[in-house]
Amino acid sequence: MTDHPDEAPGPAAVRRARPADVPALVASSAALFAEDAGARDATVDVNWPHTHGAERFTAGLDDPARLLLVADRAGEVIGHLAGTVADGPAMRPVKVATLLSLYVRPRHRRGRTGERLVDAFLDWAREQGAQQAEVTAYAANADAIRFYERNGFGPSTLTLGQPL
């Protein structure tokens, strides 16, 4: 047995989410909120996935401007990706695909599941006619920044904040 189950034969399948996946999407999103925003941003409601996630994910399943993917290993959802595509404003008239959230359960990391989710997102973005893909990460989340840089993303803008 390997320390990283995702390295075992039979990688997770990346597929579009279905209605039956909504509870797993909520659980995956809740894990992301707890691990990322919960540790880095006191202004984020870490209970949001439990109170609003099911409604939001259900609405996104049939929305052509939204993408909901799951990473499925033997019938178990081990991760997700959510993204959108939208036309930019007149000041920046390009269609932009935004990777909103990405999560892979810790014990399934290092097996390219995250990369496969990002690849599927970028393929979808191109199919939608997007000219730019974007993702945000907390500045303190060096692992996420390195992951996105390995997957072709680079610095674009910097948002500075100050609690009041």
Rank of each mutant, 00 (worst) to 15 (best):
A140M: 15
V96H: 04
F121C: 10
P11R: 08
T98K: 07
A54K: 03
N47I: 04
V96Y: 02
L68F: 00
G88R: 06
A142F: 09
V46T: 15
D21V: 15
G152V: 02
T159A: 13
V77H: 02
E76A: 13
L102M: 12
A82E: 10
L117Y: 06
A86K: 12
L122H: 04
D63P: 09
V46G: 05
A12E: 04
P23Q: 11
A144Y: 09
V22C: 13
L61Q: 13
A31H: 12
G10I: 03
M91Y: 06
V26L: 02
R107S: 14
P49F: 02
D41G: 09
A17E: 07
A39S: 15
D62N: 13
L164F: 08
M91N: 12
E127H: 11
I78M: 04
H80E: 08
A86F: 03
R146P: 01
A34I: 09
D45P: 11
P11V: 08
E7W: 02
A30V: 06
R15W: 02
G111E: 04
A17S: 10
P11F: 05
P106C: 11
V46S: 08
R40A: 13
A13E: 15
S101G: 14
F147H: 00
T43L: 15
V22T: 09
W124C: 08
R105M: 09
L117C: 13
E134L: 09
L117N: 05
D36S: 14
R110L: 06
P19T: 05
R146C: 02
A20G: 14
V85C: 12
L102Y: 00
Q132F: 05
N47W: 08
E7R: 15
L122V: 13
L61C: 12
A82M: 04
D21T: 14
V26Q: 00
F153L: 10
E55I: 06
W48F: 12
R18N: 07
R116W: 07
L67I: 08
E55P: 07
N47Y: 06
T98Q: 06
R107N: 12
A137R: 05
L32V: 00
T43N: 14
G154Y: 01
H108C: 11
P163G: 07
F33H: 09
I78W: 00
G114K: 04
L102C: 07
D45S: 10
